[in-house]
Write a protein that binds this DNA or RNA. Structure first.
Lengths: 335, 335
DNA sequence: TGCTTTTATGAAAACCTTTTCACCCAGGAT
DNA sequence: ATCCTGGGTGAAAAGGTTTTCATAAAAGCA
């Protein structure tokens, strides 16, 4: 039932070369032959086979995307941007969810290589040296999205986390807060969590506030439940707190939830500022003040950068830093 | 730099047939030859080319996924399930975001066909007759996820929307509510919105409450803003309302937001029940009571059903209906 | 008219595998 | 000694395309 170029050629009474030409350089074939062939293609419901094409062109117009957890809005917004850029540049996206699991990641990478992807976008997670080894073996253009590597020269696009956190903290300070806690990511993550911590501390220092990481900062996961948990810890260790910087929106909502359940109202008693500006930041009560990263744009630019790499065009800067933006809503109050 | 089977064969001093055998039926080749070949493969960092394989096997181990909007948590949770099922059965997922745009969908479908996907999962959106024509031309196994078709015999997996809505409405009624409004989807959508409306109305009738669609039901989009908007309308048309069934969690949060801003507290003044049980339903204040659909599972099962179709195994039932579940949290109060 | 150039087409090689078939050789049975 | 069996291997075709090169016909030009 599936028809190939041969069937078309036979039906149109031409050679397969001619059929191929009709598809790729139609101006090179006589007008009558052309329509004859096109009619045959239509009649047979013919579609060219991208596998055969890819074999010859050594190019598949497919990109691999490695994502730790697609159901996380953080990644899905980025993915959305990637998908649009991919459509624009005629790529397909092959999606691999890694669950932050190294074995699964390597497996996916292997599968992607076998499928001859033209390029790869790697999201979040730092690039550990052994990852870099694998990347090198892949022999494929790679772009990092929402992460970067200072050790290795891999193109990347992300926000300036240190500065963004600085701005978040400064926002709280400018609203008159002096006793500020932070809910931070894992201490082992120095591509995202550490810069954010540093930005936070810098803001405190710049404004002559004392800093005490031990009591003031709570480390943990990025999820709602982690934020909830962390808020509890923080309140115990640092009771006279008036504001909290939660370095992800989910954590922020978790914190707010904890505060709400423990009779503190936001922002009247305690102000909370988040990080990311996911769609859910507008949906909470109170609406969340947060420092936004343009996730859609990060995804979009990552794919465009990858395309440049693939086309061997100039890549622009190796490490692109996109603008963050302070989004003031209702979870931060003047004090 | 890229090595093929020939390079391996040359280095190992064997024919390419032998190399191929080492990969596909290693027991058929003498142990010394086997290790010789394996060493050569390792030395050359050889990976087989899935394009060439696919050409022969007429099977690519790739599935297409058509999704209206990946950044929507509704789809991203489903996608997560699909991805896990895909990994389990050794498929790759090629993701296409359609933006609910017909032209883009057809374009994607074409691309997917060219790439020789083994099957397709189509999410949400009703299957219009012209879609069905396209599907037929595709000559590829298809499964519908979170949608179904009564006109056409296409395998599908989804929740029983009518019954789920019935349960939602009944939950409100059992909590003593008599004046209940509904925020509903578009009136043109009769795969999801209409059954939900019918379930809602059935519950009212069964419990001898009067129904007046005109004043009691507000139609609109599924987003937060739509819910916000709709809540306003509803309150104007049907002022002495004590409870609202919003037929998506996002709409429910929009409604809650509206109520909050207009001085009504949830659930003390007005109860709200949602639909979906997205992750964000646990993150709101108050935590949202909702009737949950197992989105992850829907995605997972859809891919497994697709796999059965591809393998020509028995598909089980054509239309699978998975269990919904009433998740009682804090947005519904007794009256 | 006879020559060269151009235009339209086809044959065959190449891309990288898998698989069928044939071959060779060692060992067991007769 | 002869035949058969079978394990291990290689040559070649097939899968669907693109592309190079060759060829034939038509057109241009003197």
């Amino acid at each position: 039932m599936e028809s190939n170029i041969k069937d078309v050629a036979r039906l149109a009474n031409v050679s397969i070369s001619t059929v191929s030409r009709v598809m790729n350089m139609p101006e090179k074939v006589a007008i009558e032959t052309r329509v004859k062939v096109q009619e045959a293609m239509k009649e047979l419901n013919y579609t060219p086979n991208a596998l055969a094409r890819g074999l010859i062109y050594k190019r598949t117009k497919s990109l691999g995307v490695l994502i730790p957890d697609i159901s996380n809005m953080f990644y899905s917004e980025m993915l959305h941007g990637m998908e649009h850029a991919a459509q624009r540049h005629h790529y397909n996206l092959i999606l691999c969810n890694t669950d932050n699991n190294k074995a699964r990641m390597l497996e996916s990478l292997n599968m992607l290589k076998e499928k001859q992807i033209d390029g790869l976008v790697f999201t979040s997670e730092p690039v550990y040296p052994d990852y870099y080894e694998v990347f090198k073996k892949l022999q494929i253009p790679i772009v990092l999205a929402a992460t970067h590597s200072l050790e290795f020269d891999i193109p990347s696009v992300k926000v300036n986390d240190e500065q963004a956190s600085f701005d978040a903290a400064e926002c709280l300070i400018k609203h008159g807060h002096r006793r500020i806690g932070m809910i931070c990511g894992s201490i082992t993550d120095n591509v995202t969590a550490m810069p954010r911590l540093q930005g936070f501390l810098r803001a405190l220092r710049v404004h002559d506030l004392e800093t005490d990481v031990d009591s003031q900062v709570q480390f943990g996961g990025y999820k709602f439940e982690d934020g909830y948990e962390a808020m509890g810890q923080l309140l115990r260790k640092f009771p006279d707190i008036t504001a909290v910087f939660a370095s992800s929106d989910e954590r922020a909502l978790g914190a707010i939830s904890y505060l709400h359940e423990h009779g503190k109202s936001v922002p009247e008693d305690i102000s909370v500022i988040g990080f990311d500006n996911l769609r859910l930041a507008q949906m909470s009560i109170p609406k969340l003040t947060t420092v936004g990263q343009p996730l859609y744009q990060i995804g979009y630019l990552a794919v465009e950068k990858l395309d440049h790499l693939i086309q061997n065009e100039h890549v622009g800067e190796l490490r692109t830093y996109v603008r963050h933006e302070l989004v003031e809503r209702q979870s931060v109050a003047r004090r």
